[in-house]
């Protein structure tokens, strides 16, 4: 484990804790896309099936369990919690997330490293994670005035992806035979999707203004 990978994982963890804080403490999920959260739950459920088949480290297993638990907990809150579900911007969160799932699945059937059940699902989870943020970005664009916690949540998610790219570069130069094209390309696509958001986030932070996305 290198410092970039650790920083990436910690940003990811922190972003989820921010979201849980907002939902659990403030009892509001305003500005949060349920579509994106459902996609993440599906991403983790399909990727971390390897919890049962291979052991890497206690760290890996605990992190995987946390990501699984937190993603399903967030979806549960937004769908079923008496107070939280009322703050959900259902009418604004209209992205057709089902249209992302099928193409990602077909792509995973076509482009993968091994044609086995776990391997195809793992590849599917990478493709889906790359685009899972889209409903959230569309929702942010629509609400325009982004509340602080939601803005920070998306920022730390994007930071997590950026640190992973640094981690891959570092590993490529320090380890032998370390290359993973599918992971890299889907990771690059995913990080690129944050570029526009990052621009406005940093701009509002530098001017100490509330984050506002252009129409």
């Amino acid at each position: 484990m290198n410092i970039f990978r650790l920083a990436g994982d910690m940003s990811h963890l922190f972003s989820i804790l921010l979201l849980l804080l907002k939902i659990h403490t403030i009892k509001s999920c305003a500005g949060v896309s349920l579509k994106t959260q459902e996609l993440y739950a599906l991403v983790f459920a399909t990727r971390y099936l390897d919890i049962f088949t291979g052991y890497i480290s206690l760290y890996n297993t605990l992190m995987k369990m946390f990501f699984l638990w937190s993603s399903f907990t967030i979806v549960w809150y937004m769908r079923y919690h008496n107070v939280v579900r009322r703050s959900y911007d259902k009418d604004q969160d209209t992205f057709r997330h089902y249209f992302l799932i099928l193409p990602c699945f077909i792509l995973a059937l076509l482009v993968h490293e091994k044609f086995t059940f776990l391997e195809v699902l793992w590849t599917f989870s990478l493709y889906l994670e790359a685009v899972a943020i889209l409903p959230q970005l569309v929702l942010l664009q629509r609400t325009r005035n982004v509340d602080n916690l939601t803005g920070h949540y998306v920022f730390f998610l994007g930071a997590y992806r950026s640190f992973y790219i640094l981690n891959w570069i570092y590993r490529y130069f320090t380890e032998q035979n370390y290359y993973k094209w599918i992971t890299w390309i889907s990771g690059l696509v995913q990080t690129a999707l944050y570029a526009d958001f990052f621009y406005y986030y940093v701009k509002s932070w530098r001017n100490s203004e509330r984050l506002q996305l252009p129409a």
């Binding site: 480290s57 995987k64 035979n177 992971t183």
Partner: peptide, 10 residues
């Protein structure tokens, strides 16, 4: 690329 597939990342 035999061992590069080890999935140690999250």
């Amino acid at each position: 690329a035999k061992e590069s597939r080890k999935k140690d990342e999250l």
